[in-house]
Design a protein around this nucleic acid. Structure first.
Lengths: 137, 137
DNA sequence: CCGAATCCATCAGGATACTG
DNA sequence: CAGTATCCTGATGGATTCGG
């Protein structure tokens, strides 16, 4: 989502205008994460399993359509942010278990609120959309 | 965010596998919208002004860093979804006023919850991030 | 089994210039 | 004033293949 933290921002002909759209805004950065295609789904699936751990392959099954690459990347991102924990069983073949951290669990709440809104109101947004399509045809 | 409704999805050598990652999921579509760079900021600014209307130029001032193109696109998207209303004063030069619809206002609530989470917890996520960076350096 | 690496198509979104 | 049009870039993320 173009997080690009170091966009070139403040660059106008007359020099330092001061950094535009504050590069620190926590909401912006959060949206950059959960807006990423699979992140919020991963949080949801892990939250549903919580406090159980879930293995990589099992996650992939529960998130229909995700590739290994994206599942891996998504989980790494969440792990880096301290939202999920990883546990590796050094057997062969190895088994890797994931679960939400306490921090990750707290995110589930506002995320669930968003899902509820979506389920309650997106149909209406879609109707508005179709109305727009028709009357500009 | 790759909404791409008609991605080529279900295409495996053996034909119809059935559409992958359900194309209907309302939460997915909502995230595709609010994940877009300026949408949630626009909702916030309009919500703060509500029930007052806000003009285009004023919105641009309150959303530091946004270009005319993106402001226009963002507002159009929100208008299409029925989340904001447009009122044109046919003077010259023309004046266009925007405001959240009742539907748009209901979205502010879960969005505010998300912002609160971000302000409360993103610092912790960032700390986790820096830890990760250091220990793999 | 889990994931890293490579390759590649698509697209969000910024800069700039032009209109009614 | 409030857009629209055009051009261009980097990032997202899918497919596929290789490795431990």
């Amino acid at each position: 989502m173009t997080s690009s933290p170091t966009s070139r921002a403040s660059r106008s002909p007359d020099g330092a205008r001061g950094d535009l759209f504050d590069p620190q805004c926590p909401t912006r950065r959060l949206l950059d994460r959960i807006g990423t295609k699979w992140t919020s789904m991963a949080v949801k699936v892990l939250a549903e399993a919580s406090p159980e751990e879930v293995r990589f392959a099992e996650l992939q099954r529960r998130m229909a359509g995700i590739s290994q690459k994206m599942l891996s990347a998504t989980l790494q991102g969440l792990a880096r942010d301290g939202l999920v924990g990883r546990r590796v069983e050094a057997t062969v073949p190895p088994r890797v278990y994931y679960r939400l951290t306490p921090l990750g669990l707290t995110l589930e709440e506002p995320l669930a609120a968003l899902r509820e809104w979506a389920e309650a109101h997106m149909a209406e947004a879609d109707r508005a959309n179709r109305r727009s399509e028709r009357q500009q045809a």
